[in-house]
Design a protein around this nucleic acid. Structure first.
Lengths: 224, 224
DNA sequence: ACCTGAACACCGTTCAAGT
DNA sequence: ACCTGAACACCGTTCAAGT
């Protein structure tokens, strides 16, 4: 076949874009070099000319989505801006559930690669604006970042199962809680005691309450 | 070859144990059915008779290691017990860095599978003993659990790179911080401002300070 | 410089056959 | 019931060849 014309020429960006679409549509397993070459109407060699390997492709997809989430303009008090940034990340991971495991994998290959520093920078700037002592900035920002990663990961996990499983949220939570209640009551008394709270909670609201818990701790500790 | 004698008979436990050893020694990529059959001196069919597939094997390995970490006896005030449990999980993930991505993957397949409930139960019991209103238990426990997952994941990522890369911690951190300082100073002012704190921090101590931040928030909020 | 597509090595999984 | 080992489908990656 002849070479591509300018209009449909391959580029790193077009490849990353197609990869994100495949990941969104079918999860992690949806992205293979077969599905990717099919969608881009090309061969594996063409992709390898633009991207060194699959790991880098996944890293680029992750960086792209996280970058977009952090790029939204936020204005308000530092506390409000932290809310907005955290919620942006939370929503991004919910819309792209493959981020859940991908963030872990990316970090395990290069922990201080591109994603972690960008999140630290965005959150940390607002932490420093809270008026707490400079000596606490790093630890405070770490705590927020870790919480955001952890909570977003759990939420993405839920979203992934809901998306691929076809059940709705209420059903899904009911089934999980019912499963606990079937567990040995002697072994899981706490889970049973919070069953009603789990049934009634709102994920985003709870996520923000967690942020507030940490911010309260940060500002309280800063005043000691 | 004849069937195995009783002494070296295969079992789900022996297979899981071997899998953990391979994962510890060579990371996620170190566990394949080839390496596993070789180590157990058997064929793939034998393993499939005891374990339904690789995903279940990884889930069992994860549950085993997390279960051990939560099984240690802890005594003290609720606050101290939360410290001990959190640190136990933190150390387990550091010793088995493959847990970092595995926890994310496991959760994304069945979010309320076996790991999350067990952690919730262990942490939650101590939260309920803190004397805060019952209505806050679920959110408080969630916040702690998410933070622990996130922080342990980051630490495992660091450990993985250190283990496979052969560099030592000081070198590794120096390189990361130097990389930031090479970044556009206009874009990463916060990272530059905390560079010294990063160089001097202790991972475990910082982790516990983060726990304290959240516990402070929990108890402060409980009193409102 | 950019792309094609056959080929390779490797992986998870299956299954007919053995004891 | 428990295990063997060849075979299969699939995947990431390479590379000689084309334009």
């Amino acid at each position: 076949m002849a070479q591509r014309t300018r209009a449909d020429a391959l580029s790193r960006e077009r490849i990353v874009e197609a990869a994100i679409e495949l990941l969104d549509a079918n999860g992690e397993r949806g992205l293979t070099f077969r599905t990717l070459t099919e969608r881009l109407a090309t061969g594996p060699g063409a992709i390898y000319w633009h991207v060194p390997n699959k790991g880098e492709l996944l890293a680029a997809a992750t960086a792209s989505v996280i970058g977009d989430a952090l790029a939204v303009a936020v204005t308000g008090s530092p506390w409000e801006e932290i809310h907005a940034l955290a919620l942006g990340l939370f929503d991004a991971v919910e819309q792209h559930p493959w981020l859940s495991s991908q963030l872990a994998v990316q970090r395990s290959h290069s922990p201080w690669g591109s994603v972690t520093p960008r999140i630290f920078e965005s959150i940390g700037r607002r932490v420093s604006a809270l008026g707490v002592p400079e000596a606490t900035w790093f630890t405070a920002t770490s705590a927020l970042a870790h919480y955001i990663f952890g909570a977003a990961g759990q939420n993405a996990a839920n979203a992934q199962v809901l998306r691929l499983g076809g059940t709705d949220r209420a059903e899904f939570i009911s089934a999980a809680v019912d499963a606990w209640e079937g567990l040995d009551p002697g072994k899981f008394p706490f889970l049973r005691s919070i069953a009603d709270q789990v049934r009634e909670h709102d994920d985003r609201e709870q996520f923000l309450t967690g942020i507030d818990l940490i911010l309260t701790g940060i500002t309280a500790q800063g005043r000691t």
